[in-house]
Design a protein around this nucleic acid. Structure first.
Ligand SMILES: [Mn+2]
Ligand SMILES: [Mn+2]
Ligand SMILES: [Zn+2]
Ligand SMILES: [Zn+2]
Lengths: 136, 136
DNA sequence: CTTTTAGTGCAACTCGATTGCAAAGATTAT
DNA sequence: ATAATCTTTGCAATCGAGTTGCACTAAAAG
């Protein structure tokens, strides 16, 4: 597992106080975080600073965003070596009971045979249901 | 292709002026429509009436919604016989050039082997890229 | 016809996301 | 080291999609 500083260095994003604390928070979570989740966790950091930090992280492929249908965009740290292109595609799971959203890095995404002449760039794949913890 | 009246009858939703015109509009579009799209197309129908109509349609499985990441939920008419459960799962395509979102009813979705003890309920699968028209 | 229930239009409101701007901090040039 | 320049941050204001309360109208039931 890389540290915040290592990740920022690799992705050539300048290390600042807000960036460090936001990235550290994201690294410590097992569920994808919304802007509000982060705001609540980091009580003394301004929302717009967190917002702009998330934009910067996403542009520099430190994190990726997930639209899980909850109305709030969620963010998760990219896997090591991720370049956010089709080869890095993976499913996300949204538990309708505990509302936890997370990356399913281990579930392979089959090759998509799009209709003729279509070009694949990215995808937002969200599977919904009950997680192992809630399905008892 | 079924008419608005037939669909409403089959799905046991009372036929009203707004419902008929909204459903007719949706049936005539090849791209999934946002609330604003419909509002713009139906200049004399109120937004909240369209909104409540869409809720009613979705609850009664006349239409399904698509979160394509554009910030506006899109709606498309369900295929005949659709029951909006995992067997009706299909991909959606969002063209990053022309911003058109539509159902890929012909592209089969492989069976999802979720991790142990997970239960699949639904999914929102949006593939992004260039449509055949824009990929030239 | 009268009563009851369902649908519609309008205005107001919610809330996540986004922006303008000035202050603070960091970097570069003199 | 100091001044000029660029970047980041905090605060307040704004945006816009979605949602709701309420009164009015239309349809269904009695
Ligand atoms: Mn992910
Ligand atoms: Mn669809
Ligand atoms: Zn759960
Ligand atoms: Zn296109």
């Amino acid at each position: 597992m890389q540290t915040e500083e290592e990740i920022l260095k690799i992705k050539k994003v300048k290390n600042t106080a807000v960036r460090t604390v936001v990235l550290r928070h994201l690294l410590n979570q097992e569920k994808a975080q919304s802007l509000k989740d982060i705001e609540n966790a980091l009580a003394y950091t301004d929302r717009s600073s967190i917002f702009r930090t998330l934009k910067t992280f996403e542009e520099n492929k430190i994190i990726h965003s997930i639209e899980d249908g909850s109305g709030m965009t969620k963010y998760a740290v990219c896997a090591e070596g991720c370049n956010c292109d089709p080869k890095d595609l993976h499913y996300h799971f949204y538990c309708s009971n505990c509302n936890k959203t997370f990356c399913l890095f281990d579930l392979p995404v089959p090759k998509l045979e799009l209709p003729k002449n279509f070009k694949l760039q990215q995808a937002n794949m969200v599977v919904k249901g009950l997680c192992d913890n809630c399905n008892k």
